[in-house]
Amino acid sequence: LDLGPVEYPAGEHRLQHPYCLWFSKRQTLVRNPQVQATEGYGQSLRLVGQVATVEQWWGLYIHVVRLHDLPQHTDLHLFKKGIRPMWEDPANSKGGKWVIRLRKGQVGRAWENLCMAMLGEQFVTGNEICGVVVSIRYQEDQLSIWNRTASDQATTARIRDSLKRLLNLPATATMEYKTHNDSLK
C-alpha cells in the first residue's frame, strides 16, 4: 500500500502536496452485506499511482480509463498521500464530504476540473481537504470532496462556494453535505 518516496524530477512543476490515485469496484460476490460495507470496501481498494508534480499528474491522468468507459459501481479516489480514502483513516474520522450528483454524461469535465482545483490549491481552507472521489453509478454519477472537520461550518461553506465557482456545474446538479458519521449509519 505504499509506492515509495515521491520523486521531483528537475524542471517539473511541484505540487503543494503529493497525491495518490485509488480505484475501487463494489464487490458483487460478497454475501454478507455488513462485510461488504466494511471489510469488503478496504479489500477492493487498489492503489493506482502517485503524483507529486503537475507533469506526473498528466502522465497518470491521460492513461486512466475514460469515465464513460468505466463500469457501474466503480470509484476513482484522488487523496493526499498518507490519507486512505476510507472513513476509518484518522484524517477522515471527524470529517465529511460535499456530494454533487450529476446526470450521466456530465461528470467527465466536472471531475477533471475538481482534480485540478484540488491539485492547484484552489480551495482556500488551509489543510482541510483530504481528497476527491468520482463514483460511477446506474442513473447518475457523483463527485465528492472530503474534508477533515465536518463540524467546521465556515470551512464547509467555503468549499461549497469554491465548488460552485470552479466546477462550472450544470443547473441540474445537486449538492449536499454529509458527515462520514451519517454515512456510516
Binding site: H13, L15, E55, W58, M116, L119, G120, E121, Q122
Partner: peptide, 21 residues
C-alpha cells in the same frame, strides 16, 4: 514556504507539454 497555487489555465497548458506524454 510559500503555498504553491496553480490555476486551471496554467495546468491545462502543461497538459500538452512534451514531458507529460
Amino acid at each position: 514556504g510559500t503555498k504553491i497555487v496553480y490555476e486551471r489555465a496554467f495546468l491545462m497548458n502543461l497538459r500538452n507539454s512534451p514531458i507529460s506524454k
